[in-house]
Write a protein that binds this DNA or RNA. Structure first.
Length: 104
DNA sequence: TCCGTGACGCGAT
DNA sequence: CATCGCGCCACGG
């Protein structure tokens, strides 16, 4: 498989590893997948692929970066998992998922 | 091949 | 805390 597919696979696997009630940012997902700086690629994957816990991926600082209906869904889903919000941001101190530090 | 666009990040102002 | 600017990457026109 080519580079693009490897990144895509690694990113998806990383996103699926986020446990219920926890969240991670685009940048963290990219880095944890082994591709620091590919946060924009993470967005592409989330927007296209199905079957991923997309609502557990937030913007830097625990801020929801989605728009329209999706923003509402994401916030609702997270709250159902027990994720607490501080105004418009998620309480990262309490819900940020820490990925196992791995390097390639 | 060049250019604009997007569920982005981050430091500076 | 709100904005701006610049950097980053893949895609589509």
């Amino acid at each position: 498989m080519n580079k693009a597919e490897q990144r895509d696979t690694a990113i998806r696997r990383t996103i699926r590893s986020i446990p219920r009630g926890k969240v991670a940012t685009y940048g963290q997902v990219a880095e944890a997948a082994g591709y620091p700086g590919y946060h924009r690629q993470v967005v592409q994957v989330l927007a296209r692929s199905e079957g991923l816990p997309w609502h557990r991926v937030l913007g830097a600082g625990g801020l929801i970066k989605t728009t329209g209906e999706d923003a509402f869904d994401q916030r609702t889903r997270l709250q159902m998992e027990g994720v607490a919000f501080h105004g418009k941001r998620v309480d990262m101190k309490q819900h940020q998922h820490v990925f196992a530090t791995r390097r390639r």
